[in-house]
Design a protein around this nucleic acid. Structure first.
Lengths: 152, 152
DNA sequence: GCACTCCTGACCAAGAAGGTCAGGAAAGTC
DNA sequence: GACTTTCCTGACCTTCTTGGTCAGGAGTGC
C-alpha cells in the first residue's frame, strides 16, 4: 500500500510537461533538473509513459518530450498504472477474481472498496488540476480534516 | 499500490479468530486449514500480530491464538499496518514530510488525499463487521457502482 | 516425562526497487 | 556529409521485499 519512487517521479515529470503546455518539446534534462530526478532513471520512466501513449518524444536537437493529450485529459491514475501496473491488486490478482471462504467471505468487498476509494481520488485529478492547484472537491474534502495530515 | 499476500492472509486469519470468539485458543493449523494458508508462513504472520498486540497466544496442548481485544475494536487498518508497515507512504516517507517543488507543488495534497481515502475504508471496517457481513456504510457506497467491480 | 503447540532465527529463490552504464538511432544544423 | 544533440534500448548492478521452508528451542498441560 505504498507509492513507489517511480510513480512519484512519473507524476512530477508529467506535471512539468503539463505546465510547459505547447511551448515545444521539453528536454529530459530540464525535467530532471526541475524535479530533482536522476536523469537516466527518468529517461526509462518517460519511455514507459511513451509506450502507454501518455507522452510523445522526438530525438535530436530541438527534441524532447510533450504530452500526447491535453493536460486536462490525463489523470494521475493513468500515470500510476503506466509505471506501477494495476491499482490495488491483491496477491497480484484483481480483487474481483479472488474467492474468499469461511469467515473471510466478505473481505472481497473490502478490497473492492479500497480500490474504488483510490480510484475516486486518482481518476479525478488531472495534470491540469495538479498544475493549477485547483484540485477536485474530493481532494479538498479528504484533506480538510487535520488528522489527515498526521501519521499513524 | 497493491495488497500483499501477507496482509491478505493476516486479515483472513484474524477473521477466523474473530469468528471463534471466546471458544478458547485456536490452533495455527486450524486457521491455516480454514483459510488455505501455508502453516509455517502463517505462524510468522501471527507472531507479528502478537508483537503488535493484536493477538495473544499460548503454547502447549490446548494452546493456540485468540484476539487480544474484542472483534469490534480491531480494524483492518491495524492489521495491515502490523504486517505491511505504514499505509500510503511515498518513497518510504510519509507524504506530509515530502517537499514538492515547481509544478508538482500540489502533489503532496493528492498523496495525503490518497492516504485519507484508504484510511476511510480500512479504519472503519472492524473484524466484527467483516465476519458478520454488516459492513459500514462507506463500503456499501463504494461498491454500489458496477464499475467498482471491473478492472481497468 | 511426554506430547503438543507456539516461538524464533536462519535460510532461500525469485522478483522488484532504484538506479547506472554504454552504445545505437533519429533529428536538426552547418 | 559530418557533427551535435537528444531520445531509445538493453545490460547490468546492489539492496530490499516477497513468499515462503527448515530446524530446533521453549513453554504448557496431562
Amino acid at each position: 500500500m505504498r507509492v513507489s519512487a517511480k510513480a512519484d517521479y512519473a507524476v512530477r515529470a508529467a506535471a512539468e510537461l503539463a505546465a510547459a503546455g505547447d511551448e515545444g518539446p521539453v528536454k529530459g534534462e530540464r525535467l530532471a533538473d526541475a524535479q530533482d530526478i536522476p536523469l537516466q532513471f527518468l529517461e526509462h520512466i518517460l519511455l514507459e509513459l511513451k509506450h502507454h501513449g501518455i507522452v510523445r518524444a522526438r530525438r535530436g536537437a530541438k527534441g524532447g518530450y510533450w504530452l500526447a493529450r491535453p493536460a486536462d485529459e490525463v489523470t494521475i491514475a493513468e500515470i500510476v498504472r503506466a509505471v506501477e501496473g494495476p491499482i490495488a491488486h491483491v496477491q497480484s490478482s484483481p480483487p474481483e477474481d479472488i474467492e474468499y471462504r469461511g469467515n473471510a467471505e466478505h473481505l472481497q468487498q473490502v478490497w473492492i472498496a479500497v480500490r474504488a476509494s483510490l480510484r475516486n481520488v486518482l481518476e479525478e485529478v488531472t495534470l491540469a488540476d495538479l498544475v493549477s492547484g485547483e484540485l477536485p472537491g474530493i481532494v479538498g474534502e479528504l484533506t480538510a480534516r487535520p488528522d489527515a495530515w498526521v501519521a499513524r
